[in-house]
């Protein structure tokens, strides 16, 4: 369970969230306009941006977590990776997810390597294991990032616009995986894709003008969307004409 208490944060000197309080029982889908602070909220959860107020994870303030403990609790999956080391393979990259479990200064254990192998098989991407990370398509990269989050064994997995760069087929694959992951993990999903969000079917937090509106289960109706986004909808799709 995650609790946000009077949370305020800024992004590049601009206040984006003001005094937000929210309890996330299991899963959450974060929606909102561009620049409304969705990613900032997600980054605050994993400690990448500073904030005022407090965040509690199972009733313990996240400030008291060490970086290692935080990594074991929360995994964050970005929409896209920029990588400096051009020679890192899929296998080596996923293994980095085990860093928090590794003994300092020592090599990764055999157990860690085995876990990477099993996860690759589980996600059906064993064929990619020797490929370089830079050579992957966006869809494959998302799958590899999911694999890394899985070996990280974090209870909470945050997806930051996972389908933003994907074609419909890959979006479907990723969406199915995320739906599956809901069984054993707490999923926090940020997206603009309303059909995708409706499919994942989590409670919705809509961020608007620094504030957060929470909807347990009655969010995905055309009237509600019209009211929040200010454009007309038909069957969760924007009407262009």
């Amino acid at each position: 369970m995650i609790e946000l208490k009077n949370l305020s944060c800024s992004f590049e000197d601009k206040r984006v969230l003001q005094n937000i309080s929210l309890t996330i029982a299991q899963h959450l889908c974060i929606l909102g306009a561009n620049g409304s602070g969705k990613s900032t909220l997600a980054k605050a959860l994993c400690g990448l941006v500073t904030y005022e107020g407090d965040i509690f994870l199972d009733e313990r303030s996240i400030n008291s977590f060490s970086l290692i403990e935080k990594a074991k609790a929360i995994a964050y999956i970005p929409a896209k990776l920029e990588i400096y080391d051009a020679h890192i393979s899929v296998q080596d990259f996923i293994l980095l997810g085990r860093f928090a479990y590794k003994k300092s200064f020592f090599e990764y254990a055999h157990k860690d390597v085995e876990m990477v192998k099993e996860t690759l098989e589980f996600l059906n991407i064993s064929r990619l294991k020797h490929n370089l990370l830079n050579e992957l398509s966006s869809g494959e990269q998302q799958l590899v990032l999911i694999a890394q989050a899985l070996v990280q064994q974090s209870q909470i997995i945050i997806f930051d616009e996972p389908t933003a760069n994907l074609d419909p087929k890959n979006s479907k694959i990723i969406a199915q995986h995320i739906k599956e992951l809901k069984k054993n993990h707490n999923i926090i999903l940020i997206t603009h894709d309303l059909h995708f969000a409706a499919y994942i079917d989590s409670p919705v937090a809509f961020i608007q003008e620094h504030a957060l509106h929470y909807y347990e289960d009655d969010f995905f109706t055309d009237t509600r969307l019209e009211e929040l986004y200010g454009v007309s909808f038909d069957g969760l799709a924007v009407q262009y004409d």
Binding site: C46, G47, L48, L67, I68, K70, A71, K72, I74, A75, Y76, P78, L81, L96, G97, F99, A100, Q152
Partner: peptide, 8 residues
Amino acid sequence: EQAQLKGV
């Protein structure tokens, strides 16, 4: 960012 998220 990635390094920090993995516990570095």
